[in-house]
Write a protein that binds this DNA or RNA. Structure first.
Lengths: 204, 204
DNA sequence: AGGTATTTCAACACCGTGTTGATTATTGTT
DNA sequence: AACAATAATCAACACGGTGTTGAAATACCT
């Protein structure tokens, strides 16, 4: 039982390369299987033996990226050492997305898939929300809900802008900005005077 | 020259009603003109005399919604009285979207159009950014850029959640939450202790 | 080299598309 | 009420992409 045939890997690679290639100048809804196979240089029947349609292809590509993402996130969250600050975790996330930039730029781009961003958010959600929940006992569940909705979407928004600008800023700097905005809101633009007041209350 | 034929308005109404109806349980990419016309109860040729395809229909619907949106926003931004607080403006925005809920729920929903949300953001952008720019002289342009990317996407995220939950929370409360998160970040969950420190610095 | 798995190729019926021209129905105007 | 103009309907059409088939060719792994 050969778990990975060389031909299959080549074929999938060709398909995916052609897919991201086409997706650069054309929205996904106007990509046909025929066109994809022509630019990939493979037979149309071969495509159908791996995917059911274009959207199935996209879903599967996203799936694999998310697995990478989760795998990269795991060690960051497990290590409970004192030098594992929230900023480092966030930086790790940015770094991971930078490494999968080819997929992320299209799937998070203007023609991208909203559901993908939503799933990206959900992964972080479970890990963060409970520590927030436990900590901010004064806050209502609804407030927590909306706070999370805001900051998660906000991070994605920052991420999209980052990818759109070619990721010139370092992952660490991005993480630092994201962290500060989440912590201090607009105070982020005024420096970090409020930092010390909040620091000791923040859950690790 | 009859500027508005009764038949046309009826037809368009039927089309749009059927469109939002179908969009409730199915992504836009799998909606065919044929299916749309059948549920709308009109001839397929009639559709093509008004729109070129499904996406053209969506774009035109969004267009009209955005005009409404901009019109509703205008008076809020023009009035420079002291009782026109940022919260009231934001509340006005939420209220406007609530009134166009039928379109917004689908176009901002999981199967919605990313570009629509992006345009919604851009409308507010020009108005807000310059006042931020003028005020936060210490901040770099890039920081401003990313701050705006974060909070605009954050507001949309909150909005999506709001629409998804049936808009039970009042527009004012939503606006208040959004405002506080933008201002104080996670401090929002801890009450408003930091409020006074920042207030006098915030641009009207 | 062997048998197996994958890709290729041509062909097929099927369905939605976008357009056409003729016909019918509805509108605003006189 | 009668008119011309406009809009909606209908049937029909060519076109192109879809998804599947079976046989032949090719590449893989041991």
């Amino acid at each position: 039982m050969p778990k990975s045939d060389h031909r299959i890997r080549v074929t999938k690679m060709l398909i995916r390369r052609a897919f991201t290639e086409i997706l650069r100048n054309k929205p996904i809804q106007s990509i046909s299987v025929k066109e994809l196979c022509e630019t990939a240089g493979i037979n149309r029947g071969t495509f159908y033996s791996h995917y059911t349609d274009i959207y199935d292809l996209m879903k599967k590509m996203e799936e694999e990226m998310l697995e990478d993402f989760q795998q990269a996130l795991q060690p960051l969250l497990e290590v409970h050492e004192e030098d594992m600050t929230p900023v480092k975790i966030t930086a790790g996330i940015f770094q991971c997305l930078k490494e999968n930039a080819d997929i992320c730029t299209v799937t998070l781009g203007p023609f991208g898939d909203k559901e993908f961003a939503a799933r990206l958010i959900r992964i972080g959600r479970d890990n963060y929300v409970e520590s927030y929940q436990r900590f901010f006992k004064g806050a209502t569940p609804r407030q927590l809900e909306y706070y999370y909705a805001f900051v998660s979407a906000g991070c994605i928004g920052m991420l999209e802008r980052w990818l759109a600008e070619g990721m010139h800023t370092s992952a660490e700097e991005m993480a630092d900005m994201a962290e500060k905005i989440m912590m201090y809101g607009i105070g982020f633009l005024r420096g970090e005077k409020a930092k010390e007041e909040v620091k000791e209350d923040y859950p690790v």
